[in-house]
Computed example of a mutant assay.
Amino acid sequence: MRNSRPAVAVALVSAASLALAACSTPDGAGDAASTPSDGASAADCTPEGLQTLTAGTLTVGASDPFEPWYVGEPSSGEGFESALVYAVAEELGFAEDDVEWTTVTFEQIVSPAVKPFDVAAYQTTITDERKAAVDFSSPYLTSRQGVIVADEGPRSDATSLADLEGATIGVTASQTSLAIAEAAWGDDVEITPFNAAGDGMTALSSGTIDAMVMDVDQGVAASTVYFPDTHVIGTLPPVGEPEQLGLVLDKGSSLTACVSAAVDTLEENGTLAELRTEWLKSDDVPELS
């Protein structure tokens, strides 16, 4: 049974703060992984050839699970990143039972400390600063910033950037949504930063703000699962280099090339596209103009 809205809303506040910390403003988003995937040989990219923390086991790190990335526990296989991990594991030759999950903080994922996992999957944006501390796989998702409005209210019928001129727009403080919102509207709106995406969504539902800007994939889940009195009207025009998410590995990990090769294969054979369509449900969200 799905949690009641108040309980889930509280969960979103803490989870979204982590998620949007993961999607912080890039210092220069990476083109791909820290180590090129063409350095992996087929013989090395097997459970027998990979030097994992536990022989024959792929240990995966993740923090608090929330939709659309994880539906239920990370091990469920439900949700975009949970399904992605099992698809990558299968490419590497690991059976489902050979995947072990461990709970970590976001700080553990991106810090230069030795990792308690082989690979982490938790909406982590690839940046040059982070690549100095950890390895990234090839990117598995290019993210966009979505605009969410309340179903009832003066901006409920907005379909363009101009329709929101003069509005109060919520963003997450010090995150990508702030810079992209400023680029989209300039001085034509009043931008209000929130410490967490859940705080902004609560303000939107109460009528304190007119719209909320956040990662569109999380926004779709927020408006359908956690705050069903809201809806996504579109995405903001991109600014600068696109934000891309990657799997995280220890700096200099011998697994990086093989994990990147697995992600590349899933992109090439259409599996990633299928997972995006099934779990993220943002393919048809238009770009606002």
Rank of each mutant, 00 (worst) to 15 (best):
S4F: 09
S4P: 06
R5A: 10
P6A: 07
V8N: 12
V13I: 15
A15Q: 13
S17T: 15
S17N: 11
L18A: 12
L18N: 09
L18M: 11
A21Y: 12
A21P: 06
S24H: 09
T25V: 09
D27F: 08
A29C: 10
G30Q: 02
A33R: 04
A40G: 01
S41I: 05
D44E: 14
D44Y: 08
P47G: 02
L50A: 00
A55D: 07
L58T: 10
G61M: 09
G61E: 05
S63D: 11
D64W: 11
D64G: 07
P65S: 09
P65I: 13
P68S: 04
W69Y: 15
W69S: 06
Y70P: 10
Y70A: 03
G72F: 03
P74S: 05
S76F: 01
E78K: 15
G79Q: 08
F80W: 02
A83P: 08
L84N: 02
V85N: 06
Y86R: 01
A87Q: 08
A89S: 10
G93T: 05
G93Q: 04
D97F: 11
E100L: 11
W101D: 10
T103R: 12
V104R: 02
F106N: 14
I109W: 05
V110S: 07
V110Q: 11
S111M: 06
P112M: 00
K115R: 02
F117I: 12
V119H: 01
A120I: 12
T127M: 03
D128N: 10
S137L: 02
S137V: 04
P139W: 14
Y140F: 14
Y140I: 10
Y140N: 09
L141V: 10
T142C: 05
S143E: 13
S143C: 09
V147S: 01
V149W: 02
A150I: 01
D151Y: 03
D151W: 00
E152M: 00
P154S: 10
S156A: 15
S156P: 04
D157H: 05
T159K: 11
T159H: 09
T159V: 12
T159D: 12
A162D: 10
D163Q: 02
L164K: 00
A167E: 03
T172A: 14
S174E: 14
Q175K: 13
L178F: 12
A179G: 09
I180C: 05
A181R: 01
W185I: 00
G186I: 00
D187Y: 02
V189T: 07
N195M: 14
A196I: 15
A197W: 03
A203L: 08
S206D: 13
G207C: 04
T208V: 13
M212D: 07
V213T: 13
M214E: 14
D215L: 08
D217I: 04
V220K: 13
S223C: 08
S223H: 03
V225D: 14
Y226R: 07
F227R: 01
D229Y: 04
T230S: 09
T230G: 02
V232C: 06
T235G: 06
L236V: 00
V239D: 07
P242A: 08
E243V: 15
E243F: 03
G246P: 07
L247V: 02
S254F: 00
A257P: 01
C258A: 04
E267P: 00
E267G: 06
G270A: 01
L272S: 05
A273P: 10
L275E: 04
E278M: 09
E278C: 03
W279S: 08
L280A: 06
K281F: 04
K281L: 13
K281A: 12
D283K: 13
D284P: 02
V285Q: 06
P286W: 04
